[in-house]
Design a binder for these strands. Structure first.
Lengths: 132, 132
DNA sequence: CTTGACCTTGTAGTGGCTACAAGGTGCATA
DNA sequence: TATGCACCTTGTAGCCACTACAAGGTCAAG
């Protein structure tokens, strides 16, 4: 399989696949006579794994560790579990922070009465300090 | 006021203030004899404005525009309003995306029974495709 | 006269790609 | 056979909003 095909199959763009190879997260595949990368199903599976982990918001270092762990069949999955829990925690913190932003933005917008800038509650709120 | 003091007053780090000056978002203040930046209350107010807008998640281009608009007292604040609404929309989209991540992560973690990696539901879920 | 806190400049690094330039390859069609 | 087009190759630079660091200048207190 050439890079374009594996890109279509896994949903990871060709440029990104090459980037992963440069970063050492994906091992370099063999090359065809004309120097094209030649992928097998294993690399495709790894890319799918990476994409799914990235879609769930895991960082590249996390993905790297998950990939390493996934190859050690006999070890306990406690490390995987704790990594996932730590990430969930981060996601929840981020949601909380964004909800605070959202609430303040909503309040700000609701208080604006579409007058001139000099009376604008939005500009006021930013200039002075009304919020937290 | 030297840069350290205005940094303390506004909560914007000195390095960041210099960065804003380089980027042209904050006008360069006069210098003392010894070439130190010498800020007045106006610059401090601008920095507070920037910090509050950034804390609310506005991008630097947005902040730039908000700053420009804030100087045009007589214009209608419709532009401010629509900028803020567009940003609120973005924040809400981000929250929704993170909630989907959170839910899938929770499900994944809940299904793991702390066995060996080869039976690990978390690794399974990443490798194959169970979610959206 | 030295210490230490502050300031100056410039450059490079962060994360995770993405875009682009300049050229080589492979296959179908005229 | 020539040509066009999609695909591949490498390397480099850009994105965002800082942050870190190096190497040096300034100033007041002890």
């Amino acid at each position: 399989m050439r890079i374009g095909e594996v890109a279509r199959k896994t949903g990871v763009k060709a440029e990104t696949i090459r980037f992963y190879e440069r970063e050492g997260i994906l091992t370099a595949p063999p090359r065809t006579r004309s120097n094209y990368r030649d992928y097998g199903p294993d690399e495709a599976a790894t890319l799918t794994f990476i994409r799914r982990a990235r879609d769930l918001g895991f960082s590249m270092p996390d993905v790297r560790e998950l990939l390493e762990l996934s190859n050690e069949d006999d070890r306990s999955c406690a490390a995987v579990d704790s990594l996932a829990r730590a990430h969930l925690d981060q996601v929840e913190r981020k949601i909380a922070a964004l909800q605070i932003m959202r609430d303040e933005l909503s309040r700000m917008i609701a208080s604006c009465e579409q007058d001139t800038i000099s009376d604008c509650r939005i500009i006021d709120t930013l200039a002075a300090s009304h919020g937290p």
